[in-house]
């Protein structure tokens, strides 16, 4: 039908126990940086709008 028909068997490219998720680490670092930056930008809006008690 489409691509899934050519499902990969376990033999295709052996990836062993030594697989290290380097790309994943890069993505979570990028995610964290984006999170902190966007969150801080809203936090600064809060500060700029003045205190409420």
């Amino acid at each position: 039908m489409w691509e899934r028909k050519v499902a990969l068997s376990d033999q295709d490219t052996p990836v062993g126990e030594d697989f290290t998720p380097r790309g994943t680490v890069a993505i979570v670092i990028l995610f964290t940086a984006t999170l902190v930056l966007l969150w801080l930008s809203i936090y600064l809006i809060l500060i700029a709008r003045g205190v409420t008690t």
Binding site: T13, F19, R22, G23, T24, V28, F31
Partner: peptide
């Protein structure tokens, strides 16, 4: 976030993908 992305990266490596983001 970590576990799902790592599962996908593992899958991509088995499909012959590589690189920091190329996978």
């Amino acid at each position: 976030l970590f576990t799902v992305v790592a599962s996908l990266e593992y899958a991509a490596h088995r499909r012959g993908g590589s690189g920091l983001f190329g996978w």
